[in-house]
Simulated scan of single mutants.
Amino acid sequence: MTAEHSPQPCRDSGAFQFQAAGSDLQLKPYLLEDATPTGAQIAAVLGFRPNQQVTVLHWFGTTLEDVRPDEVVDIRDGMARFIVAESDGAWRLAMDGQRLDWLARHISVSTLRQLTNIPSEFGIYLEHEDEPDELLDEGYRLDLQARGVERLASRRSTWKLNVQGEILTLHAPTIIVREALTQAGFNPDQGWHIYLKIEGQPKEVVGLDTLVDLRRPGIEKLRLTPKDVINGEGPSTLARAFSVLNIDEAFLDAKFPGWEAVLEGGRQWLLLPNHELPPGYSAQVVQLALELPPTYPATQIDMFYLFPGVTLSTGAQIPATEASAEIRGQSFQRWSRHRTAAGPWRTGHDNVKTHLALVDSALQKEVQL
């Protein structure tokens, strides 16, 4: 609460100037003839009455200290700053090891940043003893009475973005897609279908000029798929040597826009580009192949194939991956993984999408995720 009748600051060559603000931190100049006033005198200059419960805080460069009503402060240098507001006491916290007294039980992170002059590129963390420190949002309000003295620290913030398997560490919370591709080593003008993957949501189609806000919850990665290549004979087309179920086609178009249906030696292959593996493998992105039996979906899809073949990042071989299949002149590593009696193929329910869930489960199991 502010005073009912705050006087307008005036100038007098025989007076000493100081600055004061309320809890909104909007500083204004004031004058006093006394070079060493008490906390009560400072409150009176701002229009507070003696019977009001007023807290006066001395605002140094990055610290705050409570000034008692009878405590004397020195304002002769003309640089003194105070925060004055009606309050029934002061609450204490520590910011980067410095003590701060605040005039309310709650304080927002944005107010704390302004008080301590912490640059915007630094995050403010609540320190914990038995768990990781917590990065606080700007609008977060700390409860200074909840549990003793809150201890906070400022640290230069970093954000990570996965661009087609290349991990970028960024010091700003936003980035233009074009810049992200360039930093990850991709030519943005080569021609890409670009998708933003967000946890629990459908992929978003984005353009080179799209601004990606990394503070948005759930952002996982940017995925790239080459657009059709044009040569002197006209546009190239993706192989569609056999038809797939409507439900499979819709799923593949959404998740693997460059998918192909290839016939090789009488066998039907789905080739899925840019399939990302979980951490722990010798490669991050592979081409995934699934063999569709001629009687699919009455007959189950079994196993899966990777190109290039992978090992664990430790160099260890993976059991039941020794065999291979040649597709378009490339040797795909066969992963011999099969359904069990506890989880049989269900005609009318299972399809490419549900089989890929088993593929991902098998890949995660090997790295114990």
Rank of each mutant, 00 (worst) to 15 (best):
E4Q: 15
H5L: 15
C10G: 13
R11H: 07
S13K: 03
A15I: 00
A15V: 01
F18P: 00
Q19E: 14
A21M: 11
S23E: 13
D24L: 13
Q26S: 15
Q26T: 13
L32C: 07
L32W: 04
A35D: 07
P37K: 13
A40T: 09
A44G: 10
V45Q: 12
P50D: 11
P69Y: 09
D70M: 11
E71K: 12
V72G: 05
D74W: 05
R76I: 00
M79G: 05
M79A: 10
A80M: 08
A80G: 10
R81C: 14
A85G: 11
G89N: 07
M95E: 08
Q98C: 06
I107R: 10
R113F: 07
Q114T: 13
L115K: 08
I124C: 12
L136Q: 08
G148W: 03
G148T: 10
G148Y: 14
V149F: 01
V149Q: 12
L152K: 04
R156I: 10
T158N: 06
L161N: 05
V163L: 14
Q164L: 00
G165A: 12
I167H: 02
T169D: 09
I175H: 06
I176W: 02
R178K: 09
A180W: 11
Q183G: 06
G185Q: 10
P188R: 05
D189M: 11
Q190C: 02
G191M: 01
H193S: 09
I198M: 03
T210A: 00
R215Y: 03
K221N: 08
T225C: 02
K227Y: 00
V229T: 11
I230T: 09
N231K: 03
N231C: 09
G234A: 01
G234T: 08
S236C: 03
R240Q: 14
A241Q: 05
S243H: 05
A254Q: 14
L263R: 02
G266Q: 05
G266W: 02
G266F: 05
L270N: 15
S282M: 03
Q284S: 15
L288W: 07
P293A: 14
F304C: 13
Y305S: 09
Y305M: 08
T311K: 09
L312Q: 12
T314G: 06
P319S: 14
T321C: 10
T321P: 00
T321F: 05
R328H: 07
G329K: 10
Q333C: 07
W335A: 14
W335T: 08
A341N: 08
D350A: 05
K353F: 07
H355G: 02
L356T: 03
L356I: 15
A362C: 01
